[in-house]
């Protein structure tokens, strides 16, 4: 099952552009990840970290990102799309007013699941407890460091999709699929009952081909955000040629 996703920093570079970029992306991709900006994004490289900081300087908050997610959700429903929206953020953004309250707000805006960049499997229970209550997906990670046992565990517990991180590194690095990660991807595919999706480092058609060779899909973030910073036309063209090459 093909399952490709795109990542955009919420309400960046401005609300209007973000909404347009979202609808353009949703023509092609199966799911969207909305980055809810956090002041200290340790899993992000310079491009996405700086986009998050600028968004915060522009006054982006959880509330105004969720408002636009509601609009995107309406757009999905009105077009009869079968597409999902995930929020990607950091633990404190969910924890600070209580996890229950935040997840309830997320669910209310129509989000399908959450991805927390600084929450590993062993700390996930306190969050998953509430995503379960509100019927949201909780996304787990596989990394080049994952052991056989950890892969089995994650595959047994996962819902939504499995986020395979291609490398030891932050977002925005160059993709190199070495033997370790290829073995890990193959093992994950073997145990997974839901899509395995490769993220971190996907920048061009070649990377996409490589990802799709081993997994069910890819997530593209930094490369897309860079295009969006150039302009909506550049962004659209970039997605069109990705589509032409990956079907």
């Amino acid at each position: 099952m093909k399952y490709n996703g795109f990542y955009l920093v919420g309400n960046y570079p401005d609300e209007e552009t973000f909404l347009q970029a979202a609808t353009i992306g949703l023509h092609y991709f199966d799911f969207m990840e909305v980055g809810l900006p956090f002041s200290d994004p340790i899993a992000d490289g310079p491009v996405l970290a700086s986009a998050s900081h600028k968004a915060l300087q522009n006054g982006v908050t959880t509330d105004n990102v969720l408002n636009n997610i509601k609009k995107i959700k309406d757009y999905i429903i009105n077009n009869n799309y079968n597409k999902k929206i995930y929020i990607m953020t950091y633990a404190n953004k969910v924890y600070h007013t209580t996890i229950d309250r935040t997840i309830a707000l997320f669910a209310d805006s129509g989000v399908d699941g959450i991805i927390l960049a600084d929450v590993p499997y062993k700390e996930s229970a306190r969050f998953k407890q509430y995503t379960d209550i509100y019927h949201l997906d909780y996304i787990h990670f596989i990394t080049p460091e994952s052991t056989h046992t950890q892969i089995q565990q994650v595959c047994a517990d996962a819902n939504g999709f499995i986020y395979a991180i291609s490398m030891r590194g932050t977002t925005g690095n160059t993709l190199t699929l070495d033997n370790t990660i290829i073995d890990i991807l193959q093992l994950t595919k073997q145990y997974a009952k839901i899509p395995v999706v490769l993220g971190f480092g996907i920048q061009n058609n070649h990377d996409v081909q490589q990802a799709l060779h081993y997994t069910d899909g890819f997530i593209i973030g930094t490369a897309l955000e860079k295009k969006l910073e150039e302009g909506l036309n550049e962004y659209k063209q970039f997605i069109n040629q990705l589509q032409a090459h990956s079907g």
Binding site: I42, K122, I142, T143, P144, E145
Partner: peptide
């Protein structure tokens, strides 16, 4: 699990856990 009462823990990217 690395907790002092309710405080502490290991909130890092999955890659660092091992």
């Amino acid at each position: 699990n690395g907790y002092f009462g309710i405080f502490g823990g290991m909130f890092v990217p999955e890659t660092l856990v091992n």
